[in-house]
Design a protein around this nucleic acid. Sequence first.
DNA 1: TCTGGGGTCCTAGGACCC
DNA 2: TCTGGGGTCCTAGGACCC
Length: 447
Amino acid sequence: MSRCYALVDCNSFYASCERLFRPDLRQRPVIVLSNNDGCVVSLSREAKDLGIPMGVPYHQIRDWAQQQGVAVFSSNYALYGDLSNRVMRTLEQLAPRIEIYSIDEAFADLGGMQRWDLTQWGRQVRQTVLRHCGLPVCVGIAPTKTLAKLANHVAKGQRAQGGGVIVWQQAAQWQPQLAQTEVEAIWGIGRRLGRQLRLLQIDSAADLAAAHLPTLRKQFSVSVERIARELNGVACLGYAQMPAARAQILCSRSFGRRLTQQQDLAEALCHFACQAAEKLRAQQQRCRELTIFIRTHPFAASGQTPRPAYANQAAWRFLEPTADSRDLMQACHALLASIWRPGYQYLKAGVILRDFYAAGSFQPELFVQAPPRPRSAELMQVIDRINRRGGAPIRFAGQGLDPQWQMRREHLSPAYTTDWRQLPLVTLGPCAATLMRRSPATENPVP
DNA sequence: TCTGGGGTCCTAGGACCC
DNA sequence: TCTGGGGTCCTAGGACCC
């Protein structure tokens, strides 16, 4: 049976989320910043039209953006994560099965639905998600994931004409588009590969589709060969309904300000370790390896006022797999002591967990068994349950009481959908409903 | 002063084994 | 004249994605 994939992708996802509870921003340019208010990572249509580039450091455009009346937001992952869930639950009702690919997009498996009016199906998806979640999406449908991605990209460009849905079932439908698509615009071809492909006169998606497959594999990799096949309608990328358990878990942050004390770094690392442990337990696993890394500013040595730069990492192997936050924190302390160097201004640190085992699946060596922590699993379970409920979380003293490394989020919007205290208020006027929200500072409703 | 965080997949090369 | 070869496993690093 031939395959058929739909890619459903939210338009300007973070910016759209911010706008959802701020109808006053509906026609205004909106941008969302990365952690620490570093770079621009999401732009509304109006902000793109102003020419703000994706990924630009915010400080480079701050004053200008203010003059242009751009609404600026810090990343609010509590809000985006919750709205993403609502979108995915909605899609599950509209498709036989979906594969969640990222926070704002999902593939739907439409195999067996080829005789349907797929354009009509795509329109229904757009309408339903808009009605249930208030978020605009575009839909691309094609026989392979790579083509569905491209169809979605085209649909985004055409949505002004009332479209937003592109369906390709025959090669004649997608071939004209391949000729117009730059090779770097293909899913899986980045800047580096693009440059190398262009050296071989492969400039467009059509060129890649027509390229000699064994040469592609030899000169690049099997991944590039697969992309070329997919552009010809031959599905190489399978469908994964269940998200595979993560093979590694990484928790890291750039700090809101530089850290110079070992104790502050230790607290940050312990905090990341506890976050990572929570994710590990959520996927019912234990890990045998923990890596920490610390580093100064990457541009420290080359900046205007050069500072000494330092980066290092170290790994710990547990005798037996563990998911106990206390084991991970102990390892963090030991590892930090081995790579800590005084006299540097540290900007970033992180914890990586690897080498996972399901509980009970590990054969310990006969004579080297770690002394078990009594009732470890039960304790962690209770902590996770309490922390999932929201409100004040349970934390370990090692995470610190007054973190010195909190990130900068000067433009954070309320947690409209995940915190009772920040719920938006709606007051009904004589003619129209006006959306209100509480000001966190005063608890008074403000428009 | 100011440049994110969290992932995956693939390959090359070294260690080790028989 | 001339030092085996083939296989597996692991890790580091590169490239990509959102």
